[in-house]
Nucleic acid binder design. Structure first.
Lengths: 231, 231
DNA sequence: GCTATAGTTTGAATGCGTTCAAAAAAAGAA
DNA sequence: TTCTTTTTTTGAACGCATTCAAACTATAGC
């Protein structure tokens, strides 16, 4: 019924993805039809669908790929500086550089993202591994950097910054300014703000605020769960 | 070619919207087909499309309708209390109460929202009137309330809170907890946080932070514009 | 009333994502 | 090899959003 994890099928799926990416880049996501992709791959339409459940799944596969590439680049980032702002900016810029040729795929991804029940949403339970991987990268970037943050918030900071990252990506994909200057300005301003805020969390009278902020991150994180129960 | 603003066509369009809403409520957005809507309206498929450009436009019409209703309710809110948190919570809760029977329409709206070039996005230039209306309501709610905020940020606060509102809606529509308890908790926590932060902006040493925050709101606001030029 | 014009309706395409039963190929067991 | 089981491939549907040329109806100016 569904595609298995045999050598051949893995190869075919990869081939499908590469072909699709080429066509997406050339014609955009909407104008590229599944028939085109199948043809260009030397497969029949039905066969393509044997390997890939939907057209959108190809986009998720692409996103997963960029995640893997980012892991390799992360060491360089950590090595380059101890400064939180510099490191995180580098992380974001690397992501954008990866996605630049496929900007409209980002919008497809964002579409899926809005419904957390959708298995293809970056927020869904199904994509938790990918999400954890991305959060891990941020974690590494934080570790040994110059950020100071209250103990109550420290464990939540990577998740919070991952959400922040999603927001910046949303901005970026809608940014039509030349060279995406606005995105860069947004990053510089917001990182400076975040940096100051994290420093501020260490102040003693911020305890209450910190508690609330931590709980908010928990709430957002727990949204994916089916019923209730948030501890 | 396109529908005109004659009495008859306005009536037909309204009829179409009402019929559609009934069907959406009964079967959900996806399972309701344009053919069903046209039939239930006593129109042919083509005629329906004469009045409405896409199926999604019906959702935007619905959203616009809730905006108009909210305007009427706003007076009550302002009269009920001078407390910022109470007022804004009431505003949000009214919105949710309106949308409750049509939760999946909210997800459709969110889908459109991600691409700001899409005329149906609440962020697009095309929907600016609706957006301004909604921001106006927030403005009213702020006016004469107990919030204090730095002069630099005051003009941007309504816009910022509108963005916040969009975020809360996104949370709400993904909230599967009984009675949407988590959404309520999120609102309480985040409003308290926002309240404190706004108070903090009046502190003298926050000038720099305020400037940055104001600029960030401007950047987000200006995203809709086609090319560049942000002042 | 008559005609020109603008507004509305029709029903039959078109295109595309997705599904499915059946055939073909590959892999294992004997 | 031969038989069995699993994995892939095929090509023909299906359903649904959307389009369009042609027909029909209302309206306004005379």
């Amino acid at each position: 019924m569904a595609a298995k994890t045999t050598k051949k099928s893995i190869a075919t799926k990869a081939h499908l993805l590469n072909t699709a990416l080429g066509l997406f880049q050339e014609h955009g996501f909407e104008k590229t039809t599944m028939r085109m992709i199948a043809d260009a791959c030397g497969l029949s339409l039905g066969a393509a669908y044997y390997h890939v459940k939907t057209k959108e799944e190809l986009v998720l596969l692409f996103y997963a790929q960029t995640g893997a590439e980012a892991r390799e680049h992360n060491g360089d980032i950590v090595a380059s500086s101890k400064d939180f702002k510099i490191r995180l900016k580098a992380l974001l810029q690397f992501k954008f550089q990866q996605m630049e040729p496929f900007r409209d795929l980002a919008t497809v991804l964002a579409r899926q993202a809005t419904d957390w029940r959708n298995p293809l949403s970056p927020f869904s339970p199904d994509t938790k591994p990918m999400r954890d991987e991305a959060i891990g990268l941020i974690q590494e970037v934080l570790e040994g950097s110059n950020v100071k943050v209250s103990a109550a918030l420290r464990p939540h900071l990577p998740k919070a910054l991952w959400l922040y990252q999603m927001g910046v990506i949303l901005f970026w994909m809608n940014d039509r300014s030349p060279e995406r200057r606005r995105t860069e300005e947004l990053i510089d301003l917001s990182l400076a703000l975040i940096y100051r805020l994290t420093q501020a969390t260490t102040l003693p009278f911020m305890r209450g605020v910190n508690q609330s902020a931590a709980r908010i991150v928990e709430l957002v994180e727990g949204l994916g769960e089916s019923k209730g129960a948030t501890s």
